[in-house]
Write a protein that binds this DNA or RNA. Structure first.
Lengths: 302, 302
DNA sequence: CCCATCGATTCGAAAAAGACGAAGTATGGT
DNA sequence: ACCATACTTCGTCTTTTTCGAATCGATGGG
């Protein structure tokens, strides 16, 4: 039996996270050629290409995405291991472990979580995005996460007793780099037809709503990439590779941070955000703060 | 941030599994001094001793046991990763993934699982013992295991909808190496008082029943080790290190395989065995076979 | 009690793996 | 066309890993 080389896997994982070899080389304090070579070795030993070149960047292949999911868990466990051994098992300051669906935009998550820090007592928030929503819900049952923030309620697909609390909902806005946006703004949404489009990953609620809406209008954009991670989608979009969608509540941040323009809105494509917990009545004070603030401040006017 | 060396961890894990460096060196096709040295490095980088010498063997320290739990999951994920990438994701022959509580004696598990192979169609059984029972139940919810075999019903501790099917129950027998057994057989169970005893790990049903029974009789053995893994307990016992307990149904195998003698029985210490599944009515044909055979053949007469 | 055995450890030398910088190739923006 | 950026390839050098031989300590049998 031949063992997987975990160092190679670490490099692969870091490259996937950072989106580039150069980025990873900085994180790892290594020269870029080193990483390039080691990833090649990993691909050889696995017998599968993990990355494909897209322009001057790398994107994961299907096999790469599979490997990444596992790698994510492996290295998350590794960190837990050293944490556990260094004694910080149950940190004394109030701890809030949040599982986050990776389709959610980071800036929105940050706004959701912000109130947790303002509840009077010191609190340490641990954000995890290294599992799927279903897996997080299973971890909810094991009390390894306190709350899961997702783009839909806990489905009946998995038999865990969990309760979904609506944080708020809004429509969807479509964005593109300035050049592309200029040609698209007129005749929206018809202009989306045939346009390069950055699609959210398959098993998400946004994706379903989007598919439905596009189908109903008979619009068929050209899907040039499917991205599980919404941050990745916006990075692609910023580079002018295509149109992407994001919740209307964070329009301002998206425009500002990614230098893109809004080309149109679809109120019918509802995006919902839920906090999922084990208890029907939330007890964790930080989670209570998060839920209340979301309903009042973030979605209060919209 | 300094990264955990996963190769060192692998060696550590293998040594822990095999119980000795020599054993691990055979599995890994490496020289023993290599492993010895690499484990030393791991201990240095972690700042914790993982093994302590007991006679000419190694036993895990508390820190070692913590690390082992994590390592087990890490390498189990690693194997899944390469399996997934080699395309045997959903193997066509009927697959039965069984989660096994590590307090259960392997020989009993083998007898439980035997009928799964005799159901007419080809079946591939994947036994996993790399998580705790609670974790397995959570994985049940994710359909990553089909059934969990445990020494007690699914507790209400974790909010997963799961159903426990009693496979059977029996009393407990106490065993020891011949020499020790000879002095113990008279005046059982009083003779257990002060005797070196190999206790099953804390969070198991057997342990609770045993504690209760000993307490009721006012017997206090000297606990020289607590072993989560029942196979380990019997290995210790075989070497004459102390008395250990096992379910009465497997008396014959234990006597034969470990060259130990029965020193007494306690019918009151009931050991129960459950198959835990997501459905109330079991659908998986192999699981049905397992349950029926257990009730008829294994526990039919006793 | 002594000796044979088994298993873990220490040590220095040899082999393998990893890391580096320089140069090369492809891509995208100006 | 040119430059900037990012990935690759290549030859060399460094670090890590591995090995065998020798040693130490515990165990069990004679």
């Amino acid at each position: 039996m031949e063992w997987l080389n975990y160092h190679h896997l670490l490099y692969f994982w870091m490259v996937a996270r950072e989106g580039s070899i150069v980025g990873a080389s900085k994180q790892l304090h290594l020269a870029h050629p080193t990483i390039s070579g080691q990833i090649r070795r990993l691909e050889e030993s696995l017998g599968e290409k993990l990355f494909a070149r897209r322009g001057r960047n790398l994107v994961m292949t299907d096999a790469g995405r599979v490997a990444f999911r596992y790698a994510d868990q492996i290295f998350s466990l590794g960190r837990e291991l050293v944490d556990a051994l260094e004694g910080r098992v149950g940190g004394r300051p109030l701890r809030l472990v949040v599982g986050i669906a990776d389709v959610l935009p980071p800036s929105l998550v940050r706004r959701f979580l912000d109130p947790a820090f303002r509840i009077g007592q010191p609190v340490q928030v641990i954000c995890r995005a290294d599992r799927s929503v279903d897996e997080f819900i299973a971890e909810l049952a094991l009390h390894r996460v306190d709350v899961v923030i997702a783009d839909g309620p806990a489905g009946s697909g998995i038999p865990v007793r969990a309760f979904s609390h609506l944080l708020g909902e809004c429509g969807t806005s479509f964005f593109a780099a300035p050049r592309l946006a200029a040609t698209m703004r007129r005749r929206f949404p018809r202009s989306l037809d045939g346009t390069p489009f950055l699609m959210p990953g398959a098993p998400s609620a946004v994706r379903r709503a989007l598919d439905q809406w596009l189908g109903a209008q008979g619009i068929r954009p050209t899907v040039i990439a499917e991205l599980d991670d919404s941050a990745l989608a916006r990075d692609f979009g910023r580079e002018g590779m295509g149109v992407f969608a994001a919740p209307s509540v964070i329009e301002a941040e998206v425009r500002r941070d990614h230098h893109v323009r809004v080309i149109g809105r679809a109120a019918a494509v509802r995006q919902q955000f839920y906090a999922i917990s084990v208890e029907r009545k939330i007890k964790h004070p930080a989670v209570i703060a998060v839920c209340e603030a979301a309903r009042k401040d973030i979605f209060g006017g919209g």
